[in-house]
């Protein structure tokens, strides 16, 4: 259960976080740290790639809620991409698609940030 990894890379004006494994109450603090770091570095355009995310619990979902307000206040956003059906179902049940933009593909999300800049 505790097998969880975060990979962070920077695109053009966009920070991309790749999640891998199980995001639950035990591993949520790791993601919190990652978000806090982005906010400290004033990187507010965040794409979270969930391609390798196999499970997300309510505590994991809570992490997005904890930081999205700060990020949006600074004209940024968190966009979620590449979710498996199972993970999407968890997001969907809670109504997250109404709160976050969720894309099939990471590139779409990056492009979306670009559009808004113009």
């Amino acid at each position: 259960m505790t097998d969880f990894k975060i990979h962070h890379r920077d695109g053009e004006g966009v920070s991309i976080i790749e999640l891998k494994g199980y995001l639950d109450a035990h591993t949520a603090p790791d993601l919190e740290t990652a978000f806090q770091k982005l906010i400290d570095e004033k990187k507010y355009n965040v794409v979270v790639n969930c391609r390798d995310l196999s499970y997300i619990s309510s505590a994991g979902l809570g992490v997005f809620m904890a930081y999205v307000e700060d990020i949006r206040k600074n004209m940024g956003d968190i966009k979620l991409t590449n979710m498996s059906a199972k993970v999407y179902n968890v997001f969907d049940l809670l109504g997250f698609p109404l709160l976050y933009e969720i894309f099939k593909d990471e590139q779409e999300a990056v492009l979306r940030f670009g559009e808004r800049k113009k």
Binding site: S58, G62, V63, M65, E69, L94
Partner: peptide, 8 residues
């Protein structure tokens, strides 16, 4: 509620 807490 705290920011990261919610209830279904």
């Amino acid at each position: 509620l705290e920011k990261n807490a919610f209830i279904s």
